[in-house]
């Protein structure tokens, strides 16, 4: 069942509120919803909540024989199927446009940008490599599942530990986690995805004396911009965009100011100044997201060590 399009009053109100730089959920235009990461009992099992959107990422590893053409590299496969569990808008067996978009973007962000060092996943050249299988379970869709899925996936990759192995002659010895501590994945960089919804009108700056948001984030303003960018769009905000060519801009970038992927499929034209400004805004937000992930990882590590020492 397709979700019904918003009613005329809802659409008009949401658009007029955006023109006054206000959002229904009280955020500022360039604010993301609160992130909550839960590191599961297993290594590489992370549940990411972005507002009410929830995605569970799980990684498991096994040893396989590498394909002939790439004998020195491990394999990472991503499985992301959106089931009707997320929302009644999705059906099994028939991928929606959104699902295709999310799968392609995940592929680009995690595999094609070489986030994980695949050569370090090689055990014996041409004989044994690690195969990492990343499965994403979309638990609840409350808008912007792409950002949530990417964050869950990155968090899972950072949380995951593979067993220590040793090559003795022809044999490969796998050590139990109790014998030798498992080792984290070698990662080149940790990309985070941020999605903007772009509206073809200029918005007046938010009134300063009132703050609808509890955490007021100061954002640099761009003068004379003819577009309004909205970070982390809610389902209502996303449905205001024309469905034929939704003007969504997804940026994948690292806290070290590396831009990995830019994805914008049609929609409102963006001038170079506006684009650079959006990247700058995303840079700032990415640092917040990173702080959240690093804090969560440290806490998860401390907890795991606490259990281990008992």
């Amino acid at each position: 069942m397709r979700p019904p399009s918003p009613s005329i009053p809802e659409r008009e109100f949401a658009l007029s509120a955006l023109q006054q730089s206000m959002r229904i959920d009280g955020r500022t235009l360039l604010e993301i919803r609160p992130i909550n990461l839960t590191f599961g009992p297993a290594l590489g099992c992370v549940e990411c909540e972005l507002g009410k959107t929830r995605v569970l990422a799980f990684i498991d590893s096994k040893m396989i024989k590498p394909p002939e053409e790439r004998p020195l590299e491990g394999i990472i496969s991503i499985h992301s199927e959106i089931s009707p569990m997320a929302s009644s808008a999705y059906e099994t067996g028939r991928p929606s446009d959104e699902e295709v978009a999310i799968t392609r973007m995940l592929e680009k962000v995690l595999r094609r940008s070489d986030a994980v060092d695949r050569e370090s996943l090689c055990i014996v050249a041409g004989q044994r490599v690690w195969h990492l299988r990343l499965t994403l379970h979309f638990l609840a869709d409350a808008g912007n599942m792409l950002d949530c899925a990417c964050l869950a996936a990155v968090a899972a990759l950072r949380h995951f530990r593979r067993p220590e192995v040793e090559v003795v002659g022809e044999d490969v010895i796998t050590y139990d986690p109790s014998e030798r501590p498992p080792i984290p994945l070698a990662m080149h960089h940790t990309p985070y995805v941020l999605t903007f919804a772009l509206f073809p009108f200029a918005s007046t700056p938010a009134p300063q004396q009132t703050k609808l948001s509890s955490t007021h984030v100061p954002t640099p303003q761009l003068a004379n911009s003819s577009i309004t960018a909205v970070l982390d769009p809610s389902p209502l905000e996303a449905s205001l965009l024309p469905s034929s060519s939704p003007s969504l801009l997804s940026l994948a970038l690292t806290p070290q100011r590396e831009l990995c992927v830019v994805n914008k499929a049609g929609g409102v034209p963006v001038s170079p100044e506006e684009f650079l400004w959006l990247v700058k805004v995303a840079e700032e937000r990415v640092r917040e997201v990173e702080a959240c992930l690093e804090g969560g990882l440290l806490k998860a590590k401390a907890e795991a060590e606490g259990i281990g020492s008992l």
Binding site: P9, F13, S16, A17, Q20, M22, R23, I24, D25, G26, P207, T210, L212
Partner: peptide, 16 residues
């Protein structure tokens, strides 16, 4: 629940 107030800000307050 349908709400209408004089300003968008107040409507958002009611919604929240």
């Amino acid at each position: 629940i349908w709400v209408d107030t004089k300003s968008a800000q107040n409507t958002i307050i009611v919604a929240r």
